[in-house]
């Protein structure tokens, strides 16, 4: 299982990093969002706010990559005719899908680097990390939390042929509910409550508090808790939905 997960993740990270054209998109999107935030928030004259915006834009892209990557991965398997083979393999299906979703989040690491460099070089955003060690731990925890939420989403995509479009539609709602660029304080109260159940909410808080303080540890802990929960829920959902798809004979439908 561990070997399947590790090798699967490595293959997908390499695969996602193969096309320079794809990577250009990965880098440009968070830069666009961060730039919009810089130009809008510039009037507040608060460098910490701009750094938080950089981090928020990076996590936004991580989520996009995970949700689109996981839906696109399944759709690609359908088109290539390999989804049935993967389902029939003796390795649990979750161990095949989870590496894809986590690898998408890892590729989002490029976005983090690019956005921080962009902000520092062009907008004089100070790159001062209050807790460097915690930051180094918070980033993979954030990737894991977002990737595992992707696993839960991917399980529903097994049933749904137009999964890619659904993945795209899920970007903004999660960005809003997790307060990545727009603070939850300006949104209706119930929106923040939804965020508690979402990996990007805790991942972003872990990274932000590691960079800006005061304490990132509770959020890092929550990342691990929600990741474990998503793994259990995602595995159960995958099993159930694969069973339904097999009994309906819809796995191969493109």
């Amino acid at each position: 299982m561990i070997r399947a997960f590790a090798s699967g993740m490595w293959i997908h990270v390499v695969q996602f990093s193969r096309n320079p054209f794809d990577l250009t998109g990965v880098v440009i999107w968070p830069i666009v969002y961060a730039s919009i935030a810089y130009y809008l928030l510039d009037s507040k004259d608060n460098p910490r706010l701009l750094l938080a915006a950089s981090l928020g834009a990076s996590v936004m892209l991580m989520w996009s990559l995970v949700v689109i990557g996981s839906s696109n991965a399944l759709e690609n398997q359908r088109w290539l005719g390999t989804l049935e083979l993967l389902v029939a393999a003796p390795v649990p299906f979750a161990a095949v899908i989870a590496p894809i979703t986590v690898a998408s989040g890892v590729v989002g690491g490029y976005a983090l680097v690019a956005t921080l460099a962009w902000g520092t070089l062009l907008f004089d955003v100070p790159l001062v990390i209050v807790h460097p060690l915690a930051f180094a731990l918070a980033v993979p925890c954030c990737v894991l939390a977002i990737g595992m939420l992707g696993l839960v989403m991917a399980s529903t995509f097994v049933l749904y042929r137009a999964a890619f479009s659904l993945g795209i539609a899920l970007q903004y709602p999660v960005w809003i509910a997790t307060g990545l660029l727009v603070p939850l304080s300006v949104l209706p109260t119930f929106v923040g409550r939804i965020g508690w159940f979402l990996g990007p909410y805790w991942g972003y808080r872990a990274i932000r508090e590691a960079a800006l303080g005061p304490s990132p540890w509770p959020a890092i802990g929550m990342c691990l808790v929600v990741s474990a929960t998503y793994l259990v829920v995602g595995t159960a959902c995958l099993r159930a939905f694969v069973h339904v798809a097999r009994s309906r004979g819809t796995l191969k439908l493109t």
């Binding site: 919009i36 009037s43 903004y172 809003i176 603070p183 300006v186």
Partner: peptide
Amino acid sequence: GYPIFEILFFAYLGRFASV
């Protein structure tokens, strides 16, 4: 859903930025 949430996202960002 996509355009509705996109409009709301930027409108609330603008509210926060007071721009």
